[in-house]
C-alpha cells in the first residue's frame, strides 16, 4: 500500500481542459453523489453527536466537560498521546529511512509487519499485553515480585496505544521518501555533510508535510483508541480511564448528553488539527 493517505490538493487539477473532464451536469451529479454518501456515512453520525451533546443545554455540556473525572480522563489521554506519538514518530522516520534509502532482503516482510497493527483486531492488540504482562502472563510473576505494574496502569495504556498507532507515521513517510529518491542526499554527502546534517537539512525539509500529516493522524488515532485500551485499562474512575472509556462509562450511566458532550470534545480536537493542517498547507503552497 505505497502512497496511502497522502493528500495534496492540486490546484491545477480543477483547471483541466474541457476535453479531459466531464460535462457540467455529470460533474455536479458526481459531486452530489459523493457528498450525499459522505453525508450519510460520516457527517450524519457527527451531527447526531453534537445534537445529543447539546440536547440538555449548554450548561450540562460545560458541566460534563468540566467534571473532574472527565478532566482526569482528558489528562490521561493527552499524556498517553504525548508519549505514544513521539515514539512512533521517531520509529516512523527511522523505518522510512531504512526502507526507502537502502536495498535489503525481506523489505516486503518488514513493510507488512509495520502494516500489521492496522489489520489486527483491537481486541487482540489489548489481549497480547495481558498475555505478556498480566499476573497470569509470561512476565507477570517476575514483574509482580518487583512491584512493577504495567497493565491496568499508564504503561499498559501507552503500550496498547503505541501498538495501534505504529504504522501511521512510517506508512505516510515511506512513499514520500521513495518518490524523493536519494540524489539530494548523495549530493550533500559528497559535499562532506555528515549523517544528521543530511537528515536535518536535506531530507526533513522535503518530507515535512508528510511527516506532519502522519503525526496528526497518529495523534488523532492515539487519542481515540477504544478497543485495545479498554482491555488493558482496568476502568478505574479518575485514574485509568481515557476519554473514550469515560464516554462509555457515561453512556452506561444513562448520562447520554454528557457522554456525547465528551465525545464531541474529541471530535473537535480532531477537526481542529485537520483544519490547522490544511491552513498551514495552503499558506505554504501560496508562498511559492
Amino acid at each position: 500500500m505505497a502512497g496511502t493517505i497522502t493528500v495534496h490538493l492540486n490546484k491545477e487539477a480543477s483547471k483541466r481542459p474541457e476535453h479531459v473532464t466531464e460535462s457540467g451536469p455529470v460533474r455536479w451529479i458526481l459531486i452530489a453523489i459523493a457528498l450525499l454518501f459522505l453525508g450519510l456515512i460520516v457527517v450524519l453520525p457527527l451531527l447526531s453527536i453534537f445534537v445529543e451533546a447539546f440536547k440538555k443545554g449548554v450548561g450540562v455540556y460545560i458541566d460534563s466537560i468540566k467534571d473532574p473525572d472527565a478532566m482526569s480522563a482528558l489528562k490521561l489521554t493527552l499524556t498517553t498521546a504525548l508519549i505514544a506519538v513521539p515514539l512512533n514518530t521517531v520509529f516512523g522516520i527511522a523505518a522510512a529511512w531504512a526502507i526507502s534509502k537502502f536495498r535489503f532482503r525481506g523489505k516486503n516482510i518488514l513493510i507488512t509487519l509495520i502494516d500489521l497493527p492496522f489489520a489486527v483486531s483491537p481486541v487482540i492488540s489489548g489481549m497480547v499485553y495481558v498475555l505478556l504482562f498480566g499476573a497470569q502472563g509470561f512476565l507477570g510473576p517476575w514483574l509482580d515480585d518487583r512491584g512493577i505494574q504495567i497493565i491496568f496502569a499508564l504503561p499498559g495504556i501507552v503500550l496498547a496505544t503505541v501498538f495501534v498507532t505504529v504504522p501511521f507515521v512510517a506508512r505516510e513517510l515511506i512513499p514520500h521518501m521513495q518518490a524523493q529518491g536519494v540524489q539530494e542526499e548523495e549530493a550533500a554527502s559528497s559535499l562532506g555533510a555528515k549523517g544528521w546534517q543530511i537528515f536535518w537539512r536535506v531530507t526533513l525539509p522535503n518530507i515535512k508535510w508528510g511527516l506532519l500529516y502522519g503525526i496528526i493522524l497518529c495523534n488523532a488515532r492515539a487519542m481515540g483508541e477504544f478497543g485495545a485500551v479498554s482491555v488493558v485499562s482496568g476502568h478505574i474512575r479518575g485514574e485509568t480511564n481515557t476519554l473514550p472509556l469515560h464516554i462509555e462509562i457515561l453512556y452506561n450511566e444513562y448520562q447520554f448528553s454528557a457522554s456525547f458532550a465528551v465525545a464531541s470534545l474529541l471530535v473537535m480536537l480532531a477537526v481542529v488539527t485537520l483544519i490547522v493542517k490544511s491552513i498551514v498547507e495552503w499558506k505554504s503552497s501560496s508562498q511559492h
Binding site: 481515540g224 474529541l266 480532531a270
Partner: peptide
C-alpha cells in the same frame, strides 16, 4: 479522515 480519529 474523521473515522480514523473518532473513538470506535
Amino acid at each position: 479522515d474523521l473515522p480514523f480519529a473518532l473513538p470506535t
